[in-house]
């Protein structure tokens, strides 16, 4: 079995894989980085989204051997150096952008890639950018709100989670 080397979240790692092993399985089973999830087998759900050499990649759509020598970032490397949530992660918590949490690592990684390309995306741009990531829990509203907030944009009151006060009848 080939041995591959990657720089993963800033640390050099080597792992032995079969030729057919997908990158996501090398991360999960080989390196025990289980924050990257597998939600489908057709590269549709986006739960396994990571960054390879700075670009968002569905880790189920790439063989592990293809990542030999690559710079890989996963959800485990996203927090601030003091261990606190980064801006995107904090916005997801603040705006209830997750429920079961299974799609969440992929959503956070996809968001990081989006904001690198487009620091102030509008509602439609955000929704378009999330096309490759399926969430079954939130209806995406909390996620869209979180991304608006993470990019320093106001979350319109009528769109946020708190209902506007309604006078008693």
């Amino acid at each position: 079995m080939p041995e591959i080397s990657m720089r993963v979240n800033g640390t050099d790692r080597t792992v032995r894989v079969e030729n057919r092993t997908l990158l996501v399985h090398a991360l999960r089973d080989g390196l025990r980085l289980t924050g990257t999830h597998v939600g489908c087998d057709t590269s549709q759900c986006g739960a396994c989204t990571i960054h390879v050499d700075g670009a968002p990649v569905k880790a189920c759509s790439m063989l592990a051997v293809e990542a030999d020598g690559a710079e890989v970032e996963t959800i485990e490397g996203q927090a601030m150096s003091d261990g606190s949530l980064n801006t995107i992660q904090q916005a997801f918590q603040d705006h209830h952008g997750l429920q079961c949490g299974f799609c969440t690592p992929g959503m956070v990684m996809a968001t990081a890639a989006l904001l690198r390309e487009n620091p102030k995306p509008g509602d439609a741009e955000i929704r378009h950018a999330l096309k490759g990531n399926i969430c079954r829990c939130t209806g995406y509203q909390g996620i869209v709100n979180a991304i608006l907030a993470a990019s320093g944009q106001p979350v319109p009151a009528a769109m946020d989670s708190e209902p506007a006060p309604v006078a008693a009848e």
Binding site: T34, G35, H37, I75, Q89, Q93, D94, G101, T104, V108
Partner: peptide, 15 residues
């Protein structure tokens, strides 16, 4: 705000 979010957002959920 949900306390369980922190582990999910860090990739520390244990499914």
């Amino acid at each position: 705000k949900r306390r369980e979010d922190v582990r999910f957002l860090m990739g520390r959920g244990k499914y």
